[in-house]
Amino acid sequence: MKEVTSISISSRLRKLLAYATATDRINKEYKAYIQEANRKLYAWQEDGQFVGCIGISFINTYECEIKHIAVLPEERGKHIGRQMIQFVLHHHALKRITAETDIEAVDFYRKFGFTIISLGEKYPGVERFQCVYEKNN
């Protein structure tokens, strides 16, 4: 895993973030990762190429929220997403991680051990879910 700190966004990283946020928000979100002290963006590399990324926002010293997580479609199923969460969890000695997601990603978080809570229809026709992972001591 590599922390992303470059002022300019690479085309590969832009492509990854497009899987995790609206295309018109990529530049704004990337800028926040680079400029805000409570946010970090990490990239997973295979053969020197970015194939996954995870962006987090710290709530406090022991808790963060996953803002973005993405793996290239051709690399999915290789546990890269799981390994990125494990990296963040251990690298920052976190006790709690949260994420908000849609129905398509609920099983990914559930398999990791997150508790899933429905937030209901947050947007017209779109049910959202709060995912919470509490590390056992």
Rank of each mutant, 00 (worst) to 15 (best):
M1W: 03
V4G: 10
T5M: 12
T5I: 13
I7H: 11
I7P: 02
I9W: 01
L13P: 03
R14N: 14
R14T: 07
R14V: 00
L16T: 02
L17Q: 08
Y19I: 01
A20E: 05
T23Q: 12
I26C: 02
I26K: 03
K31F: 11
A32W: 02
A32D: 12
I34R: 11
Q35L: 14
A37C: 08
A43M: 10
A43Q: 09
W44I: 00
D47E: 14
G48D: 02
V51Q: 01
N60K: 08
N60P: 00
Y62Q: 13
E63K: 11
E63G: 05
H68G: 01
V71M: 00
P73L: 06
E74Q: 11
K78E: 05
G81M: 03
R82E: 12
I85G: 06
V88M: 10
L89P: 08
H90L: 12
A93V: 13
L94K: 05
L94R: 07
I97R: 05
T98E: 12
T98W: 03
A99G: 08
T101D: 05
E104K: 15
V106W: 00
V106R: 09
F114H: 10
T115E: 15
I117S: 11
S118M: 06
E121L: 07
Y123A: 14
P124H: 11
G125D: 07
E127G: 01
E127F: 12
V132I: 15
V132F: 05
Y133D: 09
